[in-house]
Amino acid sequence: MPPSDFTRRNVLATGTAGLALAQAVKADTYQSDPKLPPAETDRPAAADPLHGYVFFSTAEASFIEAALARLIPKDELGPGAVEAGVAVFIDRQLAGPYGQGDHFYLKGPFPKSEPTQGWQAPKPAEVYRQAIPAVERYAKDSAGASFAQLSPEKQDTVLKALESGDAKLKGGVEAKTFFALLLQNTMEGFFSDPLYGGNRDMAGWKLIGFPGARYNNRPYVLRHGERYPLPPVAIGGRPDWSRS
């Protein structure tokens, strides 16, 4: 921030923001005797396994599914993002605390910021909601059809324009911001625990050889040059846990 911006107004505003922050943050503290009843182990909140979208409208879902099929396509190596349930993962994320920006400080002031200052856009759910219609308009204007109707090659052209920022979206959302968020969420969905809706049948982990959620791999640490013998396991287990 240049010295000329260092005004009394800015200082006061920042101070107010600091106060608001101090009120909003509530930390869990453990006293000297941690009362942690064993049965109350933190149980992760699993995604609702029922099919159907909670956040996305039909039109939004049609764009998301088409875009996911290009970001991680199904190929000879295995299922792609669509087959692995990534659309459901993103849908549940956007409907939940992440999409609602619960992890962000979302109050003013909103001075002009630097890219190094972190997230500078509305909450993630809002970014998707504003960007998808704008991208659809861009697709119609530049390629002549809604995104899902385009050929894979033309879809890639649109996505590349979003990624580079060459596409100018109407409605105030930056194309680069949206693309970066979509790509990030797609990877998260493809590699997160299947409990959260994506990475179905541990497809993402099988692709890269990730062994999953075992707490301790000590027996294998010193066994160099050998293949890790165990199949991947998710928080909810693996097929071998149940009798076939």
Partner: peptide, 21 residues
């Protein structure tokens, strides 16, 4: 044997971290 097979898979993934192989 089917119980022993699934039981072993669960033991390896969930129990052996602390109770060891």
């Amino acid at each position: 044997p089917a119980a022993m097979h699934s039981g072993e898979a669960i033991f390896v993934d969930a129990c052996a971290s602390c109770h060891l192989a």
